[in-house]
Structure formats: structure tokens, C-alpha cells
Design a protein around this nucleic acid. Sequence first.
DNA 1: TCTGTTATCCATAGATCCATGGAATATGGA
DNA 2: TCCATATTCCATGGATCTATGGATAACAGA
Lengths: 243, 243
Amino acid sequence: MEYGTSADGRPDLYEQLARIGKVVVHPKRVELLDLLCQAERSVEALAQAVDLKLSTASAHLQVMRQARLVETRREGNRVYYRAAGEEVCRFVSALGDLGRARLAEIDQILRAVEARSESAERVTRDELLERARSGEVVVLDVRPLEEYTAGHIPGAISLPLEHLEAHLDDLDPGLEVVAYCRGPLCLLAPEAVAALRARGLRARCLEDGLPEWRQAGLPVATGIEHAGEASADGSEKNLGPRT
Amino acid sequence: MEYGTSADGRPDLYEQLARIGKVVVHPKRVELLDLLCQAERSVEALAQAVDLKLSTASAHLQVMRQARLVETRREGNRVYYRAAGEEVCRFVSALGDLGRARLAEIDQILRAVEARSESAERVTRDELLERARSGEVVVLDVRPLEEYTAGHIPGAISLPLEHLEAHLDDLDPGLEVVAYCRGPLCLLAPEAVAALRARGLRARCLEDGLPEWRQAGLPVATGIEHAGEASADGSEKNLGPRT
DNA sequence: TCTGTTATCCATAGATCCATGGAATATGGA
DNA sequence: TCCATATTCCATGGATCTATGGATAACAGA
């Protein structure tokens, strides 16, 4: 059946909204959109990140582009995709909120990881701003470096979860760690906190991720500021708060 | 291909979110969800409202139920569906916002109707509260009566768009009319304002609809308070502000 | 218990979606 | 110009979705 246009040939409102729905009906497309709300990426990087064949990922991206939820930028012979505006990120957040509120399955997944961090209270944004100012805490961005580069909490240190183990000794045991990631549905920060606490460090998660921080109108820094990863050559060991 | 579970048999987060996406991939389901954010309805009423065969509508409602976005209540031998909580309405709002922001086609549709009301500025919620208090305006709920009954702005008069023509003379020409409907994507209030202005009355739309009013935490009245429709027997002609 | 009403379930045929490999296109560098 | 890289386009087979009419189930009232 064809719903594209109403009797008078005018496109139907709900038909248009369903174009957006089409994007989020496929789990891989939801995952791609979530990634793109963090940082722009090339097609190849995206395909690898969500474990899809290149041509398949490209096809999904075309669907997203037709719904105008993503835009592209060409650099040399590669194409970078990005979320088409802040509204897209807000929509993804709303989808996540709805999922958490209504789908017990999602709550289960989150609870399982949360349990390993010994159900530590999360840190609110206000509390973080307060305590970071007075230098009591280290703020850790545990997302992949490219997402940190695209935007992070000012003063935060990049230490992707996959490199956390290797840099445990660089952290000052005297300071509490506050880790954050992509948002309420992202498992990176809870995993990091669980690992840190297992080593006896004081660590907690931020209440949610960078998108919410940005949406709250708080300042966001770009580029590389403090990369824990970079200390591989021993040149940067000071993972304390910025001075 | 099967994405339902990850390697360890755990259900995947994005697979779960896609269950919600599945609801809004079909235009009729979006329309049904939008209706259910206004008021609960029986299956038959829903099928009629969105112009679907009963069995088809029922099938769509099952999909929505499986995603747990709607809940049911049985009364006699009919089943009433309703949106499963405020989060659902917020999600529908977010979908609409995204559509308006990104899809030019939607903007076109809205602009076409808006143009007929001579692009009158919309009334903000704050302004309405201010002016309704001092009795300067009549607030008109132009949605179907059942939606008014399920929840409306306190003091508003129910005058469904389809009955507007028949009750034009009941309106006090000395007062400005503020009409509202389901929200930014609903055409009822703009249509009503266009009709009123064509008769020389002063009329404007509220900036958005009842769901946003409710989400803003403002008071909502239920039941029948002032029904313009009821004046068919001439018993209620006073469509002025409540005393 | 019987009947009429309302809603769900079911089988089916037609449409649409998806993953995939390989061809076609665009760009940069030799 | 020729080649290598990154991406898009395309044809295809298999899976999933949709609308529909009729059967079944739940319920109210006589």
C-alpha cells in the first residue's frame, strides 16, 4: 500500500516522520547514529566500529542520509559522516531515555554492569563542576581518542577504556576519579569504574555522557588537551588535574 | 541476519532500541501513537480515526504493545489503548521536533497552513497565562471532544474544529481567541485560526499543544468544563472566559 | 445458553528490506 | 595517464513486513 501522498497529492506528515523512523528500525543504524553523535568518522571507520562489511555500512549510511539525519564532508578520497545537527543527538537521547524507561531488557543490561562497580552513586554535573574547580578529582574521558578529540569536558584526560589497564599506575591514588563516556546507555565508564575500584582506587561515573553535557549548555573543549595515551613514551606522567 | 543477541547470548542494547524504532517506521503507527498521546481510545475508534481496517489497526497496536509503548485497559467488551507513560509522549515530541528541524517537506506542509492564518505570531504559554488571568482572551481547544475530556488547559472551551463554523456566532467579537490543539505538527488550531480570521475575529494559535503544556508542568483539567458543542440546545451561549 | 459486539489470531499473497560481492566512480599521487 | 584507495552503485536471493478476510475468543445482555 502507498501512503506517500494524501488524496490531494500532498505528502503526508506521518509519512515524513516515518522516514526518520526508518533510520532507527535497524539496530546497526541506531548504533551508527549513536556513534555519529559523538564524532564524525569515515565510512571505513564506521563499518569497522559497528562490525559491518563496507558496502553494507555504506548502504545504511545512505538510508540515514535520505532521512537527512546525517551529512557528509569530503576530505581527499574519503568521506566523513556526521550527525546533521544537535536535534539528531537530542532525538537519539530521547530514544535512549524511552528505552531505559520502558524496556526492562535494557535496564537488565545496564544493571549488570552497574553492579560490578559496586553501585557507587553517580556524580552529578553540578558536583563535578564544583569539585573539579577545587582540584579534588581527576576527570577521565574513557571513549576512543577520536571522540575525545571531537569534543570533551574541559580539563578531562583522555584514557580510552582499552588502554586503562596499561596506565593504572599513572593515576594519583590520592585523588578520586570521575569517568564519563557517551551517555546513560554507554558501558565504557561503568566498566572503567569497575576496573579502577577493583584496584582499590576511588572512582565514580558521571551521571551521563558528553552529549548531555553539551545539551546542558556547558563548555566543551576540542582537540587534544591531556592524553593519557600519549604517555607511552614516558613524556607525560602527570595525570592529575590541570593547573 | 540475526542481531538479537551478542556472542555471549546477552540481548544487544541497540537491538532493544530498534524495537522502539519498529513502531515509528510505519506512518500509521506514528499517527496512532500521536493520537494515543492525547487520549486513550478503543481499537475501533483508533481504526476509524486513522482510516484502517479493524484487523489491520489491531495488528499495528500489537506491534506497539510488544515494544511496550502502549498499554491496555478492558472495559466491558472493548479494549482501550493508551500511551505507556509520559516518556512515550516526550519521544513523540522529539520525533516531531526532529522532523520539523530536518525535513523541509514537513516545513512546507506547516507553512502552507500557517500562511492562511496570515502568519500571526503565536502566543507563548507565559503570555497566555498572563492574559487569561485578566480575562482578555478566550482559550479554545479545537481537538475532538474525547481529547479535551482526557485533559485540557483549565478554563479552555471545547470547540472541535468540525463544529467551529456552527458556533462562530457564539463567540464574543470583543475578545481575542487563542486556539490550541495537539502540538506543533497538528493542523487543527492553525485551521481554526484561519477560519476565525476570515470572519474578522482576532485569533492566534498557542505556540504548541497540550502535550507540551503538560510537559512544562502546567496544570491540566479533565472532564467536561466548557463545551461549546453542548450549546446546540441553546443552554450554553456564554463562551467568554470563565468567571 | 444463545446472540450480537468487539477484538485478536491466523494463513496468505504481494511488497519491501537486507547482506553481499563485484562493477562503477571519484580522488590523489606516481 | 595509470594505478591505488575510498566509496557508492547494482543485481540478487532470502528474510521480513503488511493488508486482508475469515476464524476464534472474550464479554454483555436477554
